[in-house]
Design a protein around this nucleic acid. Sequence first.
DNA 1: GCCGTTTTCGGCCCGACTGTTTTCAGTCG
Length: 575
Amino acid sequence: MPIHNTDVADILNKIADLLEIANENPFRIRAYRNAALTISGLSREVADLVANAEDLSTLPGIGKDLAGKVEEIVRTGSLKQLAELQKETPGELTELMKVAQLGPKRVATLYKQLGIKDTAGLEKAAKAGKISSLSGFGKKTEARILEELGRLRSSETAGRTRLADAERFVLPLLEYLRGLRDVKRAEAAGSYRRRKETVGDIDILAISKRGADIIGKFTRFEDVDRVISKGKTRSTVILRGELQADLRVVPAVSFGAALHYFTGSKAHNVAIRTLGVKKGLKINEYGVFKGTKRVGGKTEEEVYAAVDLPYIEPELREDRGEIDAARKGKLPDLVTLEDIKGDLQSHTTASDGKNTLEEMARAAMDLGYKYLAITDHSKRVTMAGGLDEKRLAKEIAAIDKLNKKLKGFQLLKSCEVDILKDGSLDLSDDILDQLDLVICAIHYNFNLSREKQTERVLRAMENRHFNIMAHPTGRRIGEREPYDIDLQRVFQQAKDTGCYLEINSQPDRLDLADNYVLLAREMGLKLAISTDAHSIDNLNLIRYGIGQARRGWLEKQDVLNTRSWSDLEKLLKRG
DNA sequence: GCCGTTTTCGGCCCGACTGTTTTCAGTCG
């Protein structure tokens, strides 16, 4: 099995956990965590970098020592150091740290004093009342531990929440807070604001002079299941569905600093604060300070200006080179919703969509679009009522007829053609010749080897009708892993043959993932942002695709469907 | 363990809340 970046990051984080339990130098621990963060944010597989003999110690936060360790992980799948550590500190202990209330110090105490190594031992000791007598623990902590263990058992929902699912809670919560008399402003921060594909929790920020009051009302919001903590400026609650929400109340003068601070990412914040320290400034959630004097923080722009940087868009704040780019005046001018001229993937009642051709066209026109590609499935995708040549010919005729009626708008004749197992396409060249553009996608045989899956797509791209590859890795966030495919080779083939790939905006897909969007940009490959709409409402999902594109640093010119159809048509022409 | 327009040594981001505490450690973000 190839070693992926997440595997490397997991091992580094595990070592950090174990070092923490062993009460090691906290800065050394942070070095491991920083390295894990760097690796997981890379646009390329670190295994490929090693295979190409590239110098890993040029990566931020990775020096000579960690470069060697990462190489060892890539080559052997594990690390001797980890085995050594586990002789002193059992590896299972890191699992205990996932129980709320338990951090490295308490886990170490539990292990040393009571020999507790796993959740079963923890539960037994807690029930026997042995934990409350330990120093640093008490009755309340013991009760909380038991409560948490019960919860962990009943729900395996400890994971992250998809952005769109979080949004269903965020928007009503913001509306509620904004409706309170003493709230001057309320905004969502955190990974939600950075438009990350999943969020760990919801961070909300409010301006008010009556913190305790607002916190009280927050904890009584209708979606709140239980309250974890509530103070005068800060509160944590768990919403229905086990999603955590944090509210911080700040004065107006601190709003920019707080918004910056709570938007993160953590790595970005640390980098900005470190720049501040070098200039003799203290940057925290209350503002930018020189000694005790406030010198900024009302707006985010003031925070960046304090360290001589221009404003950096939230989607870029991952410490993936944005600070360096800002310093050099080379920040991307990110694509926006307003730049989008049309949608390049949609379905109708002809296959598995919910609306007719005309309904889809009208809805796209209402969004101000100039075109919409109708991409019903091809015959192989029987589950979705895919079209054979004959039915597609009928749809083509229907589109031609409808286009004559539509003013200043055009339906594009297209199809989401299945890429068969051997890399051939599911429909004949004769019918594909009659289309404006052809979207191709994999729907079956997900479990081919990396080599076979990659060859399958490379071969498909040899077909002169292939224009855009839809949902290129087939993943369903939280449900289905991507199939194993070498996207770097696919991107290169796309460039060589004049094909493109898609960012699919469906909230459970968001495929390409942001790190691959970054890679495409680095390789100079343009992408489409499509909704894959199966209903008129679905056309609005484009905002998630835009978020993903922005996280991948895409500018207007990097996105196919920011162009008029006549300009796009020229780009799609294959030699 | 990393890193350097103050440094190759000596720093490394910072604060709120809770519970167990009589002044603070641990956890969390």
